[in-house]
Design a protein around this nucleic acid. Structure first.
Length: 152
DNA sequence: GCCAACGTTGGC
DNA sequence: GCCAACGTTGGC
């Protein structure tokens, strides 16, 4: 039996938006430099669905849906000296950072904003509504995801 | 621009 | 291993 898994990934729309992904079709979710977030990506499986969240904008919120299509990809930006994500401590023979590839599924007609999410869900239901939560990748509970899917 | 909530770093 | 200082995220 296949258990559906759901996640939420944040991106600042100035850096990479849902429109960028719609245009690209697929993208590598690289540049993650937080171990907990990286480990969540390692827990992902092909076919998992991911809510795309715009952060650091007004208003912040969920703007679309994507799907995991590839796993365990070494993040190329860690070895790129030109990249802001360059990590001098990571060696090619033992890469520290990896990521997943995602594909565009849909863009919401309207943003499901953080204030709305706070009305719908408690901190325990959906971690993104928790004050001060800085994790850019979060798991989403199955029953919460079912509700979200109807609203985006 | 402010600040809360962390994660990371480095001295000891 | 502790912890203070510092840096980052991201809402407001």
């Amino acid at each position: 039996m296949t258990e559906e898994k759901f996640w939420l990934m944040k991106s600042e729309p100035d850096a990479y938006s849902i429109d960028s992904l719609k245009n690209d079709g697929v993208t590598l979710w690289d540049g993650i430099r937080n171990y907990q977030a990286r480990n969540f990506m390692r827990d992902m499986k092909k076919g998992d669905q991911v809510f795309f969240y715009h952060s650091n904008c007004k208003p912040p919120g969920i703007v679309g849906l994507m799907e995991v299509v590839d796993l365990n990809i070494i993040d190329p930006t860690q070895f790129d000296k030109q990249s802001k994500y360059f990590d001098s401590k990571s060696k090619p023979e033992n890469p520290r950072w990896d990521c997943v590839k995602v594909k565009f599924i849909s863009k919401s007609k309207e943003i499901l904003s953080l204030p709305e999410l706070k009305i719908l869900f408690s901190e325990d239901d959906l971690l993104v509504v928790k004050k001060g939560n800085r994790l850019s990748i979060l798991p989403v509970k199955n029953d919460v995801a079912k509700i979200l899917l109807k609203k985006i």
